[in-house]
């Protein structure tokens, strides 16, 4: 396993454990605390794929793989444009 894959796997595992704990705790408690825990689980999971692309872009740029680093930056930019466009279109 490459160091980047190892780094990404480690962070993914950490987020999965934290999200699972937060979502499970959110089932047990009630009210605002449950809402906060459930939201934390959702936000941490939802942000992870995008953070993974950012980590890839940085890692590839550092390794001198500029072509694919630029492709990753273009992808994030395209997604941001898409979100803005659709949000405005509605």
């Amino acid at each position: 396993m490459t160091s980047l894959s190892s780094f990404l796997a480690k962070w993914t595992t950490t987020v999965i454990v934290l999200a699972a704990l937060a979502a499970s705790a959110g089932l047990i408690v009630h009210g605002d605390i449950a809402h906060t825990l459930n939201t934390a689980a959702l936000v941490s999971l939802g942000a992870l794929p995008m953070l993974r692309v950012i980590a890839l872009a940085v890692s590839w740029a550092r390794a001198g793989d500029r072509r694919y680093s630029a492709a990753a930056v273009m992808l994030m930019s395209l997604m941001a444009v898409g979100v803005l466009l659709v949000a405005v279109w509605r």
């Binding site: 979502a23 959110g26 809402h35």
Partner: peptide
């Protein structure tokens, strides 16, 4: 997004 139902899906899908 209904966060309480989403948390249930998070547990099952993880």
């Amino acid at each position: 997004v209904v966060v309480s139902d989403s948390a249930l899906v998070v547990i099952g899908s993880l």
